[in-house]
Simulated scan of single mutants.
Amino acid sequence: MPLPHHLCSKLQNAFRARHHQVSFDHTTQNLGILSVLLRNGFLISLTRGTTQSSDPIAFHSTPEAQRRIWATLKYRDDRPVLNEMELISMPSKRIFMTMNEIRAIVSGRRAQFIRPLRMGEIAIIKTKDKENEWLEAREALRLNTPGEVLCRAR
């Protein structure tokens, strides 16, 4: 299973190289993180496809290993909307936060060793709730759902 740092670095490098689209392995984790980025305006669209193209019809007839998620990157005034993605929780040290700690980073205070979120910045949280497994920190706060803080994007 690919780790979140692979997605973060690949997406950040694609923005820096001014790519229009980039593909990722079709996993639940990648789909969850990318959908949070899409909901928060960092991406234009997400499409399922194959290793060659973003063709949703061909997606169903290809083998599992060749299925991909294609993300269309968003630029404003020829500058990338996503400037930086930083991994917070790592395989060697996973960071779980309670509701009070999530409230602290959202409202501008430090929690554990994590800096508070700045204007236009989001934190992606993986929860144990299967219905809302991948959330942005403010959504997790609104739904009163603690979890693991995977990464932050600005």
Rank of each mutant, 00 (worst) to 15 (best):
S53I: 06
S53E: 15
D55C: 00
P56V: 11
I57K: 05
I57Q: 09
A58L: 10
F59V: 07
F59K: 06
H60K: 06
P63G: 05
A65W: 12
Q66C: 12
Q66G: 15
R67Y: 09
R67P: 05
R67D: 09
W70I: 12
W70P: 12
W70N: 11
W70A: 06
A71H: 11
T72Y: 02
T72D: 15
L73G: 06
L73N: 04
L73C: 08
R76I: 11
D77T: 10
R79P: 00
P80M: 08
P80G: 11
L82V: 05
L82N: 10
M85C: 15
I88N: 02
P91C: 12
S92E: 15
K93F: 10
R94K: 15
I95N: 00
F96C: 11
F96W: 10
F96T: 15
M97S: 07
T98M: 00
N100Q: 14
E101D: 14
I102Q: 03
R103K: 08
R103H: 10
R103W: 04
A104N: 07
A104L: 02
A104E: 12
I105G: 12
I105F: 02
V106F: 13
S107K: 08
S107Q: 10
S107D: 14
G108R: 02
G108F: 05
R109E: 15
R109A: 14
R110C: 09
A111R: 01
A111F: 03
A111W: 02
Q112K: 09
I114C: 03
I114D: 06
I114A: 02
R115P: 08
P116Q: 03
L117Q: 07
L117H: 03
R118F: 01
R118C: 04
M119F: 09
G120Y: 00
E121F: 01
I122K: 01
I122R: 00
A123H: 04
A123P: 10
A123C: 05
I124F: 11
K126G: 13
K126D: 01
D129A: 01
E131K: 06
E131F: 10
W134D: 12
L135P: 02
L135I: 11
L141N: 10
L141A: 01
L141C: 09
R142S: 14
R142M: 13
L143P: 01
T145E: 09
P146F: 01
P146A: 06
P146L: 02
